[in-house]
Simulated scan of single mutants.
Amino acid sequence: MARRRDGQEARRRDTRPMKEGGLEAERLSLSDLLDTLPVPVIVYGADGRVLFANQARKDFAGDDVATLDGAIARTAPATEDGQILPRERLPALRALHGESVRGERLRLRAADGHTEVLLVNASPLRDADGKIAAAVVVFHDITDLSDLERGRRELFAMANHDLRTPITVILAFVQLARRVARKDPDRAVKALSDIERQAQRMSRLVGDLLDVARFESGAIPVRPTENDLVETLRLAIERQSELSRFAISAPDAPVTLTFDVDRVDQILDNLLSNAIKHTASDTTVDVALTLERDEIVVRVTDHGGGIDADERALLFQPFYQTPRGRSYGGTGLGLHISRRIAEAHGGRLWLEDTVPGKTTFALALPRR
């Protein structure tokens, strides 16, 4: 018996810290716990008053929103693609009417004016009598995912169009060349040139898609050899359609280092062609190659009006195109692929801060 009492006393001593720890945890209020969550949480009463909003919600919409109507005015709820959301479709109101809302995608405006795409879940809270007393709404930021999905949709739509168009043109010109080859050789030669141009366009598109797939899988196809970067840069410029608009500053002597000449040429061609597209015909594109510490840096500067601050962080994301850039076609993959190629060489590709009206992209390769 004494041994049993000793064992029971030992167990009581062992469990006492756990009970004290449990009491300590119970002292933490629910609001304190919810404030630690990184996702916005808000609770509306049956009359639409805000009963609780955690810190993440206050950071997003402001801490002065006291009602559901105030929240609607502040956040301007819209569908993911920007269409105004009818009031009766608001997740909070639907929850106050007894519906559990799961996975609703909304575009909401934050207190500072920027918008985010949020995944919204809302549930009714009932009192002891089963009546709806409140609704709890939880938000998850999926803006990056939404942008990526939109980019992929646009890419596939563009790929469908841009692959079909050259194929149609190629087939038409093949038939034309076959008909006129003997009667009108000059016209046949022009048709063959058009076929070649459309085939190259299709090849570039397919190449971009394959490059993205390779990079995402980790199979980066880079084969470095010793090459002259000055010569590579000059050849890339000479291929551009408006050669006279380029002003180049580079050493007269060769700058030899180890890189994949085809891949670096791909980066340079992307930067140079983009610069020409985004500048007026009476302006120049400045290209400079400099030796800086352990790197060789190529800078391409255009005078096309600059890039908006909210677009700068998105430029290197796959499939992203600026509103102005969409008018030129393309895949929205060029800068993303170029940066991945630079990184595969142990180098860097970035957008520099410049004075208004200018845009400078810089490529740095190690001098090892």
Rank of each mutant, 00 (worst) to 15 (best):
L363W: 02
R263F: 07
I267Q: 03
L291T: 13
A95I: 01
D184I: 02
D144L: 10
R339C: 02
R13N: 12
R105Y: 06
P323G: 01
V101I: 15
A76D: 14
D186N: 09
I296K: 01
A280L: 08
L119K: 06
A135H: 00
T79P: 12
L205T: 08
S338L: 03
P91W: 09
S146D: 15
L176A: 15
A199D: 07
F60S: 00
L205E: 05
D69M: 04
H140N: 11
D6C: 03
R164Q: 11
E99C: 08
A92S: 15
K190S: 14
D252N: 12
S327G: 05
K190C: 12
D211E: 11
L106T: 03
I337R: 12
V120R: 00
N160E: 13
F215W: 13
A78T: 10
Q266I: 07
A188S: 15
F156K: 10
D260N: 07
R312I: 01
D129G: 15
D269Q: 11
M1W: 09
G48F: 01
A10G: 09
S100I: 10
G218A: 12
L125K: 00
D69N: 06
S241H: 08
T67N: 06
R201E: 13
V230E: 06
T258D: 07
D147P: 03
A25M: 09
E226T: 14
S123A: 14
D286I: 01
A177G: 14
T322M: 03
V101A: 06
L235G: 03
S146Q: 13
S273Q: 12
R107M: 11
R263W: 07
L30D: 07
P224C: 02
L289P: 00
R201S: 14
S241T: 07
Q317A: 11
D211S: 13
T258A: 11
D260F: 02
T359G: 08
A247I: 07
V39K: 09
A95Y: 01
D129Q: 13
R49A: 13
S193Y: 12
L33T: 09
L333Y: 09
A188K: 07
I42R: 06
R89F: 13
G329D: 00
R74P: 02
R74M: 08
L289A: 09
A128D: 11
E238I: 04
R126Q: 04
G48H: 01
L289V: 08
K19L: 14
I267T: 03
G130I: 05
L37E: 08
A134W: 05
N54Q: 01
P251M: 10
V230I: 10
T256M: 11
D147W: 12
V138Q: 13
T75H: 04
F246N: 03
G48T: 03
H278S: 05
R245Y: 04
I142D: 02
T232L: 15
A280H: 08
D141C: 06
A122M: 05
